[in-house]
Every structure is written in structure tokens, then in C-alpha cells.
Design a protein around this nucleic acid. Structure first.
Lengths: 347, 347
DNA sequence: CTGTTAGCGCGTTCAG
DNA sequence: CTGAACGCGCTAACAG
């Protein structure tokens, strides 16, 4: 049709009124007669007028958008977080500007900078694995831009944050194993320099104490990265004389590896050995036997984080030195065959 | 630290130069001495100056951001598309504004409107299932904003688009079954009012002709929505006298249901019946037997779409009435046990 | 209830 | 090489 952007001015000229009148009419200002409001809106429609958000934002110093930085978007967990975030921000009228750090610190810093340049109203971030320095986040705080960390957070900073309750849920998981009669519980954990795994490990250790079980260093594996490693480790464990009767894994992939190896070694699950995973991946209900796991709630984590952020954005002026929250989202134990000894098998 | 935004003007005052000089120095304008450039940059850094993108955008009518609308972000497929998109747009200096339609037409229209208001440089969209009317997209075209459809496209519009090659890949899948000696091939398809399934169905039908196999209406199931339905249907099929010897499913979930039922009925896969899925979900390599499937390349779909969009953005003025492309991204057959009759079993 | 005026922060003429 | 002045589109005082 046409190239020329039609502005508020064009509408004003068309109707022989001032631009302010048009502006006010379009935003439903109270001091405008209903007649002119209607007239203006009709004209705007007719002329095919599109408001220019940018100009408005410049004027009132607020672009209604929120920046989100995360390590990688293409994981079930993260994409569900975004889903949860969007559920809150969309109805509130905010756009989401999404950036990936790709687990790289420099990218993360760049992302922060780019979001600040774009005048976002607030920032939500899940830290990259590389991130140890938090100066870039401090910049955000110094500029008084609301900030919320989610999932991958940092202890170096006093900010709002929302995380999965790794610690308590692991205690619950180990307690469940204990309740099923397992007394020699091993752990295959992801690298504990990552908070998530650190907390699960701590939960494991404390749960042992709670259940008055003895800790055996030979059954504690830190830094297990994938299925292959899990398989190798399992093989080794069960070639020793003193073997565990349950294995808690900090991820379902790891648990799958364990399960496969046990099957291959003809060790019965859950009778001889119990196996428990974490994250409740889709495949966990079709493994042989089906896999008990811990289901996280990424959507809730996202929603909570978004709610907190919106709150700080709204109350930016009111409370100056408010207290920062740390919210723990409670996951759920999903008990399936791989740890069910005392009851009849499910399904 | 401070509340006050520090602007180009502050830097200018600080150095006793004009704002234009600062502006030019910061953008590396050629007619500025290196000395002053350096001086200005130093000062900017020192004063902790952050450029205001919004003001700049208003000035030159371009906000470097791209709008993305999709039905739901929390699927493996879609989040991988975004990953692919980001891979292209990030280095090019564009922000991504992401919106979800939640498979709802009104939301989609609203999203378009909101993105237009935000003055995005271009829009990428994957249509909601509800969308039959495309007036909102026509608006985008009329305003001369570059537009690319991906995955869920429409035939009503002459625009650039990028899709998975459902048709040809299905032909390849059926041909593979044929090559394994399967001659009575059934299909369990998702609802064919959705393009994706329509094309897979058409591929199936044409493949039968190509292989000179007879079409049997009793073996064609349209609108299979989930695993449960797949299980029921499978049960029914194999209670009849005339049974197929292979089942092609337009999704892995469906295939899983089929597999489970066949196992339960003690019908041997792949010996008696072959089963093939589509989309290569993570669980497909741990089913019993492992499931042959078709692996799509969502990241490539995203990247391709993004590249085309950037191209149109750059060349906006040059070529006025350019031809619109439709790119088919070729998926890959993943052959596993469930369809491997003639060769030794894999793994 | 409406019009006039004055910027928001930046880039870009036009003059030196 | 640099400065003065204007305007992008919109909103918010300040008048009437």
C-alpha cells in the first residue's frame, strides 16, 4: 500500500484538531469528550494509524519490555521456564526480549549490556556455567533496574531469586528409598561446582544422617557427565565385593545408564537394587522397569520469577531498600517401579 | 549508585564540546580526529554512559529487533527453532522479541499488532492451529515489514517460508518399509486439516502408488491424537482378519502406543509387523525394540527462516517485487530395530 | 474540554 | 574537523 508511516500528526490534521487531543483520545484520557474520542479513534482506524511505541517510550522513559537471559533455550526445562514467564508478562503488557548466553560468560556480559541499551524495564537471568564473576549483574543493580535470578543463581549477590528446591527434594528422595528398605545408597551426581548438583549432593549427605545410614565414600560419585560414564561406573561398582542396594542419580540420563547396565548384568531392579533419577524426563515412564524420579516445575519457577520482577518494577519508587526474596519451588517425587519394593508394582 | 541517566549531553558538558561531537565520536564518524574520539570514549566510559537505544531508534526509525510469534515455546521442536533463529540474529545485532499465540487466533492477531507497535524490523511466525484467516499477516505485508513463515505456514499468502519436507520424507519412509519387504502398510496420522499431517498423508498415498501397493481404506486413520487412541486402534486392527504388516505413524508418541500394544498382543516387531514413527523423540532409542523414525531439523528451519528475513530487511529498498521463496528443509530417516528386517539388528 | 509549547536523547543537516 | 539547530513521534505541563 503505502510507504509513509502515518503519525498522530496526520490524524490531527485530518480532523483539524491538535495532536495532544489525538494523543489523549487514543489513550482514553478522562478530560476528553466521548464524541471526540470516538471521532479520533474512527479516523485513526481509517487512516490506518499505528502508534509508535518507541516514541512513546522515549517520552516516558519506559519501554514495556523485559529482558531474559538464559544459557540455552532448547532444553525442556528452560523452554518451560519461558512458558511460565510469558504467562505472567504477556497479560501485564510486557514484551519479552530473549537472549542466550550459550553457557559463555562473555556472551552473558554482552547480553546484559545489550538489554540495558535497549532500556528494558527489568531483567531475568539464569547464569551460565562459566559465570563466577558477577560484576555485570552489579551494574544492573547499580542502575536500579529490577533483577531476578532463576534456576542458576549466585550466592555472591543479594538479589531476588527463584530456584528448584534441590536440597529438600533430594532428602525426600533418599527418605523414600530408605522407607522401601534400601540401606546402602550410592549417589551418581553431576559436577558439584554447579549449585544444582551441589545442593542435591548436600541433600543426599544430610539425608543419610537423618536416616542414620553410614556414608561410604566409595559410593559417592561426583562429576558424572553422561549415560556412558554412568554405565561404566555401574559396571565397576557391582564388580566389587561390597555393593550398594540403591543408586540415586542427579539426572534421569544417568539413571537410564545405570538401569541399562544393571539389566545387562542381570541384577534385578527394584528387588536387588533400587534406582532413582531426577528431572522426570519423558522417557522415564517407558524404561524397563519404569523409573522413579523427581519432577521439577520449571513453569512455576518462571512464573514466580516473573511475578517478583513485575512487582519490583511497579514498586520501584516506593520501597527503596526492600528485602530480597529467595523462593524455593518444591518439586514432586514420582514413584514408579524402579524403587517400589514393598507395594505391588504400579500399572 | 545514581539514579540519573547520564546522556550524551552530560559527556559533552564534561568535555566542553558539543553533543554532536560526542555522538559522532561514539559512532566512529570519519570526520572526527582520533584524539577527540579517544578523549570522548574515555570520558563516556568514565561517566558510565549508556547509550539510549530508544532515542537512537526513534531518530533513525529502526529498532534492531525481530519479532517471533509461535504457538507454544515449550516444545522441543519450537525451542530448537528459536535456537536456530538466535544463532543467526544475535551475531547480526538483532534482539528477539518472542510471543506465544498459545494456538489461539486472537492472541496471534494481538501479537502481530503489538510487534508492529514496537517497530520491529521484521517478523517471523509459525501459525496457530486455529488460524485460517490471514488478514493480520496481510497488514504486515502492506506496511512493508519483512515477514517469514516457518513450520506452520499458509497457502493463502505469497510470502517467504521455511518448512520441514513432510511430503518427501514420508515417501522416503514408506519406501524404506517397502524395501524391508513390508507390503501392507497402514498409517496412523494426526488430523490432516493441519498442513504437516496433510502433507505426510499425501506422501503416504503417493508412496503407495510409487511402490505399486494397494491402498486399503481400513488401514488409513486420520485424526489420531495421542498414545491412548493409537493403542485402541492397534488393538482393533489386529483383531480383524486382514491385518497390515507395517504401521507408519506421523508421530513418535503414536508409534509408541502402537509398539506397546503389539508387544502386549505378542505380535513380533519387526518380524511380523514393522513400526515407524516421525520426529525422533528422545525416547525412540530406548523403546523395545528401538523405534525407527524421521528426524527433523528445527534448528535449520529456524536458521534458514532467520537468514531469509535478515536478507529482506537489508534489501528492503533494492528489490521491490522480489520473488518469494519456499524452502524445504530435508529431514533424515533414522533406521532402528522396529523396521529392520533384512539386516542384522542394529546396536 | 481542548490547543500551545516544550522537551525525551540522539543523529544529522547546515554552517563555519 | 567541530558547533548550532532542528526534528524523529509522542506526551505532559501549562494555559485558556
Amino acid at each position: 500500500m503505502k510507504d509513509e508511516k502515518i503519525t498522530i500528526k496526520d490524524v490531527a490534521n485530518y480532523l483539524n484538531v491538535s495532536t495532544s487531543t489525538v494523543s489523549r483520545a487514543l489513550t482514553d484520557h478522562h478530560s476528553i469528550s466521548k464524541k471526540t474520542k470516538l471521532k479520533v479513534k474512527k479516523a485513526a482506524e481509517k487512516l490506518n494509524y499505528t502508534p509508535n511505541n518507541i516514541a512513546a517510550s522515549l517520552r516516558n522513559g519506559k519501554l514495556n519490555s523485559i529482558g531474559v537471559i538464559l544459557p540455552k533455550i532448547n532444553s525442556t526445562f528452560m523452554s518451560n521456564c519461558i512458558f511460565g514467564i510469558e504467562k505472567i508478562t504477556q497479560p501485564a503488557g510486557y514484551n519479552l526480549i530473549i537472549c542466550q548466553s550459550n553457557e559463555n560468560y562473555e556472551n552473558e556480559v554482552r547480553n546484559i549490556k545489550s538489554l540495558l541499551d535497549s532500556q528494558v524495564s527489568g531483567i531475568m537471568i539464569s547464569l551460565s556455567n562459566e559465570t563466577t564473576n558477577t560484576d555485570h549483574l552489579q551494574t544492573v543493580i547499580d542502575k536500579d533496574i529490577p533483577l531476578v535470578l532463576f534456576d542458576r543463581t549466585s550466592d555472591l549477590l543479594d538479589v531476588d531469586s527463584v530456584v528448584n528446591d534441590d536440597y529438600k527434594s533430594t532428602i525426600a528422595a533418599i527418605s523414600h528409598l530408605y522407607s522401601q528398605g534400601y540401606k546402602k545408597i550410592a549417589i551418581l551426581s553431576g559436577p558439584t561446582h554447579i549449585y544444582v548438583y551441589k545442593n542435591r549432593m548436600q541433600g543426599y549427605l544430610d539425608a543419610l544422617k537423618l536416616c542414620k545410614l553410614k556414608k561410604n565414600e566409595d559410593w559417592i560419585f561426583d562429576g558424572v557427565k553422561n549415560k556412558l560414564e554412568a554405565q561404566a561406573i555401574t559396571q565397576n561398582i557391582f564388580n566389587e565385593s561390597n555393593t550398594p542396594d540403591a543408586i540415586f542419580c542427579t539426572g534421569d540420563n544417568i539413571a537410564l545408564g545405570v538401569l541399562q547396565t544393571l539389566n545387562k548384568m542381570n541384577i534385578e531392579v527394584p528387588k536387588t537394587v533400587g534406582v532413582m533419577g531426577y528431572s522426570n524426563d519423558t522417557f522415564s515412564e517407558i524404561t524397563q522397569p519404569t523409573l522413579s524420579s523427581v519432577e521439577q516445575h520449571p513453569q512455576d519457577i518462571g512464573s514466580n520469577a516473573a511475578s517478583i520482577l513485575l512487582e519490583s518494577i511497579e514498586n520501584k519508587k516506593k520501597a527503596d531498600k526492600k528485602l530480597h526474596k529467595k523462593i524455593y519451588v518444591k518439586p514432586k517425587l514420582i514413584i514408579r517401579e524402579s524403587t517400589t519394593r514393598t507395594q505391588t508394582y504400579l500399572e
